[in-house]
Nucleic acid binder design. Structure first.
Length: 103
DNA sequence: ACCGTGACCCTCG
DNA sequence: ACGAGGGCCACGG
């Protein structure tokens, strides 16, 4: 079991399954992938997505419901989420109890 | 096979 | 309640 590159594949699969208009966290993806302590790695996978990937990477946020990207990438993710009807609170964070995958 | 890296998260003061 | 500090661990070079 657990062949090389499996983590990547699992992450792809899980992220691809996040419904439009919903978000989940790096930690949750890591848990679903079977490596609860590899939240950081999830970010690593998404960072190196092949250009032109159709994976909805923007639906993954940090545990506070905030965007972990910086500068231009921050704006791109924010825009993508807004265009799906996801709202940001006064603290610039998404209410996970409302827009989280499980809801 | 080792080593740096980091789109995170938990634990303590 | 909150911030700094450090552990974590799969990946690529």
């Amino acid at each position: 079991m657990n062949e090389p590159g499996n983590f990547n594949q699992r992450v792809y699969h899980i992220v691809a399954a996040i419904p439009e208009g919903r978000v989940t966290t790096y930690g949750e993806v890591a848990r679903l992938a079977g490596s609860p302590r590899a939240a950081r790695q999830v970010g690593g996978v998404l960072r190196r997505l092949p250009e032109g990937s159709r994976l909805p990477w923007h639906r993954v946020v940090n545990r506070h419901g905030g965007i972990s990207l910086q500068g231009e990438d921050f704006q791109r993710q924010r825009q993508a989420l807004l265009s799906e009807g996801i709202l940001f609170g006064p603290d610039s964070a998404i209410d996970l109890s409302r827009f989280g995958w499980k809801g």
